[in-house]
Amino acid sequence: MLDIVIEARKASIGPGMDVRRILPFRLRRMVGPFIFMDHAGPVAIQPSQTTSMDVLPHPHIGLSTVSYLFGGQVTHRDSLGVQQVIRPGEVNWMTAGSGIAHSERFEDPAALAGGQLEMIQTWVALPEKDEEASPSFDNYKPEELPIFTDTGVWMRLIAGEAFGLQSHVHTHSPLFYLHVLLEKGARFGIPMGHTERGIYIAKGSVEVSGRTFSAGQMLVFNKVVDPVIVGKEIATLMLLGGEPLGERFIWWNFVSSRKERIEQAKADWKEGRILLPPSDNQEFVPLPEDHSRPAGSPSPQALS
């Protein structure tokens, strides 16, 4: 059955960059290992304002950030020395583990022309045994990701396993993550065999069990149902889920199974023990001085 419908909330991560925040939600903190989800764009901005959108170097621990673009391009730089331009259909999968810093820059004004920039960003929590793993980064090209097509349906498997397909994207726990396009009247399912599953409607609208749901909503299902998704109009969907990992605390850009680890990460960033990207180290996001929120409560976060 349908467990909950999450309505995306507006959040600002910087001048000219408002996003729709889906996870975490106060009544549903995670879906499988997915603990965070933002939908940015389409962004319409003047070329002179491009630099105001940049996400300056900032830290992460205890998670993997997953960036996926519908349009535009973004330049990623991190403390491992990686510099990577991500384009539509590619996957940037950065595992923070014990700690990493990265930036996201919008350096090509042409990529923002006409409101082209649009991206989905998720965070995947790590199993306890991997929370302190060495940081890593991988970029996967569209041709590396499995595609499925049927009448009125196009699907790309971003990560994990679904519908008999398997992605080569390296993950740390059982999950699935799909980009799906549905034509009006087309029918699609949701992968079975996972404890927690969700459908985020990025564009358009769908019908499930006689009810219509629209862009900006996430539908979360339990394990026992096999819902049929019907396109009410052309729709873009992101399907995700997997096995729960247990309680996780989240504060700013830090995720951990232990509150004290969050406190350590705060001190590490404040004292400069998490290195900045070597090619982007002249500015950074300072640690928020937010004493009103204990570790474990949602707080303002960077895009990734």
Results as ranks from 00 to 15, higher is better:
residue 90 E to R: 09
residue 90 E to W: 06
residue 91 V to G: 00
residue 91 V to T: 09
residue 92 N to E: 10
residue 92 N to R: 08
residue 94 M to E: 01
residue 95 T to A: 05
residue 95 T to S: 06
residue 95 T to F: 02
residue 95 T to W: 00
residue 95 T to Y: 00
residue 96 A to W: 00
residue 96 A to L: 05
residue 98 S to F: 04
residue 98 S to T: 13
residue 98 S to R: 15
residue 98 S to V: 12
residue 99 G to I: 08
residue 100 I to K: 03
residue 100 I to C: 02
residue 101 A to R: 10
residue 101 A to Y: 01
residue 101 A to C: 09
residue 102 H to C: 08
residue 103 S to W: 06
residue 104 E to F: 05
residue 104 E to D: 09
residue 104 E to G: 06
residue 105 R to I: 05
residue 105 R to E: 01
residue 105 R to T: 08
residue 106 F to R: 08
residue 107 E to G: 12
residue 107 E to Q: 14
residue 109 P to A: 08
residue 109 P to M: 14
residue 110 A to C: 02
residue 111 A to V: 07
residue 111 A to G: 01
residue 111 A to S: 15
residue 113 A to R: 14
residue 114 G to I: 12
residue 114 G to L: 08
residue 114 G to K: 09
residue 115 G to A: 04
residue 115 G to K: 07
residue 116 Q to T: 10
residue 116 Q to C: 07
residue 116 Q to D: 11
residue 117 L to A: 11
residue 118 E to S: 11
residue 118 E to I: 08
residue 119 M to T: 06
residue 120 I to D: 02
residue 120 I to S: 09
residue 120 I to T: 10
residue 122 T to A: 13
residue 122 T to R: 11
residue 122 T to G: 12
residue 122 T to Y: 05
residue 124 V to W: 03
residue 125 A to P: 01
residue 125 A to W: 00
residue 125 A to G: 12
residue 127 P to E: 00
residue 127 P to G: 00
residue 127 P to R: 08
residue 127 P to Y: 02
residue 128 E to L: 13
residue 128 E to Q: 14
residue 128 E to T: 13
residue 128 E to P: 05
residue 128 E to A: 14
residue 129 K to S: 08
residue 129 K to E: 09
residue 129 K to M: 05
residue 130 D to A: 14
residue 130 D to M: 14
residue 131 E to I: 07
residue 131 E to M: 11
residue 131 E to Y: 02
residue 133 A to K: 11
residue 133 A to Y: 01
residue 133 A to D: 02
residue 133 A to N: 08
residue 134 S to Y: 05
residue 135 P to H: 03
residue 136 S to M: 04
residue 136 S to I: 08
residue 137 F to D: 00
residue 137 F to L: 02
residue 138 D to F: 15
residue 138 D to C: 13
residue 139 N to C: 10
residue 140 Y to P: 02
residue 140 Y to T: 09
residue 140 Y to G: 02
residue 141 K to D: 03
residue 141 K to M: 12
residue 142 P to M: 01
residue 144 E to D: 15
residue 144 E to F: 12
residue 144 E to K: 14
residue 145 L to A: 10
residue 145 L to Y: 11
residue 146 P to Q: 01
residue 148 F to V: 14
residue 148 F to A: 10
residue 149 T to G: 07
residue 150 D to E: 08
residue 150 D to F: 04
residue 151 T to I: 14
residue 152 G to M: 03
residue 153 V to S: 08
residue 153 V to I: 15
residue 154 W to F: 12
residue 154 W to P: 00
residue 155 M to L: 15
residue 155 M to D: 04
residue 155 M to R: 14
residue 156 R to E: 00
residue 156 R to Y: 02
residue 158 I to F: 05
residue 158 I to L: 07
residue 160 G to F: 03
residue 160 G to P: 02
residue 161 E to L: 09
residue 161 E to R: 15
residue 161 E to G: 02
residue 161 E to C: 04
